[in-house]
């Protein structure tokens, strides 16, 4: 549905996007992840035909963003970082205007507007001035604007910024409900959001593509699941270690500390399933005390930090200066 090849956007002083290529299939939800200034917004703006690329190609539904921008624009719903709303307009008036602008026939407009307002839960403010709305409502009006003409592709730049926790959950549910008929690209800083709502994740940093894979694969990329185990027993550490290594699925056992008959291990496994249960059974079977059994979360956060490590370090340096 979306194809990006060797995309580069160069400004006078810096390179915002540097030779990025990726593909997004129909109906996929893709999370666009990266620190501030990584080039997420620039890439999105190129996809929506707001900016032309310096080199490289981007196409949406088979139409090139430079050659056939009108066809691309018809098929895209775009929510920029700041919702593009007119404060002096009423919600319904604004959505009606956008509907006409997106090329809906005047017969379809009222129905589509009503449906978009219903989906984004803004029916209760339909006659209010947008300028008087809270940030959360304004964001939802922006979202309603993006889905109004039922586009094939939705491009959402930080769709949950400025929402309260309840609204974030609602927004995620809304995005999830849009999946299937729509192909969605959303950018965010919030990693849990990607873990919860995306099939695929694209990580970019300083304009460069760092990783593009399914969320599950990326988590495995770093290490399997790691479990932190504390065992209390007079038995020597070596014996315990041997026992743990024999548990099926365990790939590596590291003794991190041992004192006062307490033995601390880091146990790595290939698959996350049931290893903890196996460890517990083995320890109890051997007659030792199991003081602690805690999964060390191999979250997307770790992957993200590792992939963008250079950036993190430099930012720390700048702060300390």
């Amino acid at each position: 549905m979306i194809k990006v090849e060797g995309l580069t956007k160069r400004y006078a002083r810096n390179v915002a996007v540097d030779n990025i290529s990726f593909e997004v299939g129909k109906g996929e939800i893709v999370g666009f992840l990266g620190p501030n200034g990584a080039g997420k917004t620039t890439t999105m703006r190129i996809l929506t035909c707001f900016l032309p690329p310096t080199t490289g190609k981007a196409s949406v539904a088979g139409f090139d963003t430079l050659e056939q921008p009108m066809e691309v624009k018809k098929r895209i719903g775009y929510l920029p970082e700041n919702p593009p709303v007119y404060p002096e307009m009423e919600v319904r008036e604004y959505l009606t205007f956008v509907g006409k602008l997106k090329g809906l026939t005047s017969k379809d407009v009222p129905g589509r507007v009503e449906e978009a307002m219903k989906r984004c839960a803004i029916l209760d403010v339909k006659s209010k001035l947008i300028g008087k709305l809270s940030k959360g409502y304004r964001q939802r009006v922006g979202l309603a604007q993006a889905i109004l003409h039922n586009p094939d592709v939705l491009i959402l730049d930080e769709p949950t910024s400025g929402l309260d926790p309840k609204q974030i959950i609602e927004a995620r549910e809304l995005i999830a409900s849009l999946a299937g008929d729509h192909t969605i690209i959303l950018s965010t800083h919030i990693l849990t959001e990607i873990e919860q709502s995306c099939d695929k994740v694209i990580i970019i940093d300083k304009g460069k593509l760092k990783a593009t894979d399914s969320v599950a694969n990326l988590k495995k990329l770093l290490h399997g699941t790691e479990v932190h185990v504390e065992i209390q027993t007079p038995a020597p550490s070596a014996e315990i270690r041997q026992t743990l290594e024999q548990i099926p699925g365990v790939s590596r056992v590291v003794l991190s500390n041992a004192a006062d008959e307490r033995h601390y291990f880091e146990v790595e496994s290939l698959e996350s399933q049931n290893v903890r249960a196996e460890i517990a059974r083995a320890v109890v079977h051997a007659g030792w005390n199991l003081n602690e059994l805690r999964p060390k979360g191999a979250s997307l956060e770790d992957v993200f930090l590792q992939l963008t490590a250079s950036e993190q370090k430099t930012s720390v340096e700048t702060v300390s200066q």
């Binding site: 624009k73 018809k74 920029p80 604007q145």
Partner: peptide, 10 residues
């Protein structure tokens, strides 16, 4: 920022 809306509409 509504310029983005106009310029990304068909």
């Amino acid at each position: 920022g509504t310029m983005e809306l106009l310029m990304t509409s068909p």
